[in-house]
Amino acid sequence: MKCDGKYSTYMHKWVDEEIEPLEKIELLQHVKSCSVCKGKFEELKNVDQLLHNHHHIKAPNGFTSKVINQLPREKTSSKMRRWFKHHPLLTAAVLFLLLMSSSIYSEWGSNKSNPISVSANGAQVKIDQENGKVIVPEGEIVKGDLVVRNGDVEIAGKVEGDVTVINGNQYLASAGHIAGESQEIHKITEWVWYRLKDGTSTVKEWFTSE
């Protein structure tokens, strides 16, 4: 006996979980009375299960590298971009150094034409613009550090802190006295070093002041 083709369609819809409720009832009723379709139905469910259980195959070893070796060469720009992406800390460090050095350099460069600048912690010091000289007069006491840029310094009085002369020379009169360190900075390398030391001591101060 040849059954209606719709039952076969229903069976496939059943295994695909797409069967409508009414179709389902119709199919179940039919297979109750038709042994041929019942057998087919069982076989189909069985095949569906076999296919579901059919193993998933894995790609052979070394597959990925073989694919990559066949690709056209990568552009250098994307290699660099990737490097930056994968090394964010190094990238930040490089960027920081680049900006720092350019700012230090420009500060240094601008010194040449700039007028004398003094930071003397409020003490009365004479500034002789014509000769490019700063004088700490006799009897005057600088209570902290003395920093002079773009000029010489002559010390006849007393400095209780450090004396730093950037882009200039320092002269100590016989009566003069420096309690702290004194240094002259002439080259950009020394300037950078000074900036670094200054920076670290500032950082240290932040911590100690806490």
Partner: peptide, 8 residues
């Protein structure tokens, strides 16, 4: 699937 049903 019908073909596979017959063969399997």
């Amino acid at each position: 699937r019908e073909a596979l049903r017959k063969r399997l």
